[in-house]
Structures are given as structure tokens and as C-alpha cells.
Amino acid sequence: MKLMPLSLSLIAVFALAGCDRIDPNSPLGKRKAIYQQMLDTKEDLGGMLRGRLAFDPQGFVSGAAKLDELSRQPWQYYPEVKEDQSDARDDVWQQQERFNQMARELEAHTAALVAATAKVPVTAESVAPAFQRVEDACEACHQKFRAY
């Protein structure tokens, strides 16, 4: 009989733990998934430039193209009203013109990174400045609009 209260307690804990989950099909879930893919791709590219990973010119070229494609996707998943679980500051919705401008700046920087990878030979030195501008654009937007 002592197992019954313990079992019920465990079921309640697991049920409550699931309440904080984000629906992957919600706008928040979709943009978080895109941002995670962007982060993973950016970390791989940065790892190649910082020596954590071996520099692979073709891998860098394909990673830059993937990052450029991803950089154009999350903006469509910002609803008109902020969701409760969002990491974004209210400023995203209060300063939409600036937010959209920063999104376009990121897109321009990822496009410039792709253009830098078109110049042969692709070396860490030849793409590092363009990659740094992408990182700076990400950081600027996070500083302005992300609630840490």
C-alpha cells in the first residue's frame, strides 16, 4: 500500500514537468528550433575558424549557405502578441521596425558570408571578417531584444 502514494506522487511530478514544454508546432517552438539550428551551424563555423575543428573549406561553404538560409526563416514565426514562454523582450513587439531592421542586417551579413566563400581559395583568413560580422549582428540583436 505504501507504493500507491509514491506512485501517485511520481506521476504528478512527471505530469507537472511536462507542463513547461513548448509545443514544437507553435510559432515559438518553430522559431526556437530554427534558432537552435542557426546556433549549431554557427558554432561549427566558428569552431573551424578558432581551431576547435579542422578547417574544411567545402564544409565551411556549405555551412555558410545553410546559415544564410536559416537566417531568413525565424521572423515569420513571431506572432502579433508575445507568448508566455518566449525569451524575447517586449521590445520585439514594441519596436518592430528596429527588430525587423536588425533581422534584415543579419540576412545581409549571412549573404555576405556566402559571397566571401565564393572567392577561391576559401581559407579561414578569407572568411573570418565576414563571419565576425554575422556574429556581431547576432549579438547586437540579442543584447537589444533577448531576455536572458
Rank of each mutant, 00 (worst) to 15 (best):
L6E: 13
D87Q: 10
K2M: 14
R31L: 04
Q73T: 06
L39V: 12
Y35W: 15
Q95K: 13
K66C: 08
C141V: 00
L49V: 05
T110A: 07
D91N: 06
L49E: 07
P129R: 01
C141H: 01
K2D: 12
L67C: 03
P27I: 06
L45R: 04
I34C: 06
E135Q: 12
N25M: 09
L49G: 08
Y78A: 04
D87G: 10
M1G: 14
Q96R: 14
D44L: 14
M38K: 14
W93Y: 00
D20H: 13
M102C: 07
P5N: 01
D136A: 15
R50H: 13
K66N: 10
T110Y: 03
Y148L: 12
I11M: 13
T123A: 01
E83M: 11
S9G: 11
K82I: 05
V122M: 00
R89L: 15
K66P: 02
M38A: 13
G47P: 01
L6C: 07
A130E: 01
L39D: 14
P74I: 02
H109M: 11
D87T: 10
I22V: 11
F55V: 07
H109R: 15
H142Q: 04
R52W: 11
D84V: 12
G18I: 02
L39H: 14
G18M: 09
M48Y: 05
P129M: 02
Q37V: 08
G46M: 04
L53A: 10
D56F: 07
D40A: 14
Q58D: 09
E80S: 12
L106K: 01
G29A: 10
G59C: 07
L53C: 06
A140P: 00
V114A: 06
R52D: 14
L67N: 03
H142F: 03
E69G: 15
M48R: 02
R72I: 01
Q143L: 11
R98G: 07
S62R: 12
L49P: 02
A12F: 05
L106F: 00
V81F: 10
K30C: 08
A64W: 00
A12E: 04
L106G: 01
T123Q: 01
S126N: 08
V92R: 00
R98Y: 04
G18A: 13
A130Q: 03
V81P: 05
W93D: 00
L53G: 02
W75C: 02
D23H: 05
Q143Y: 06
W75I: 06
V61A: 11
L67H: 03
L49M: 09
W75E: 09
Q36L: 15
L106C: 02
A115I: 04
Y35F: 15
P121G: 08
V61Q: 09
Y77H: 14
R31E: 05
Q85V: 04
Q76C: 01
M48H: 05
A140H: 07
P79I: 07
G18Q: 13
S9I: 13
L16N: 09
S86G: 01
Y35V: 06
G59H: 03
A33L: 06
A12H: 03
R89M: 03
D44R: 14
T117V: 00
V61F: 10
E83R: 03
R98D: 10
I34Q: 04
T41D: 09
R72M: 07
P57Y: 05
L53S: 10
Q58W: 05
A15P: 08
L49W: 03
P24D: 08
P27W: 08
T110D: 03
S86R: 04
E83F: 00
F55M: 02
Q73V: 06
Y148C: 13
E43Q: 11
V134E: 01
V13I: 11
L10F: 12
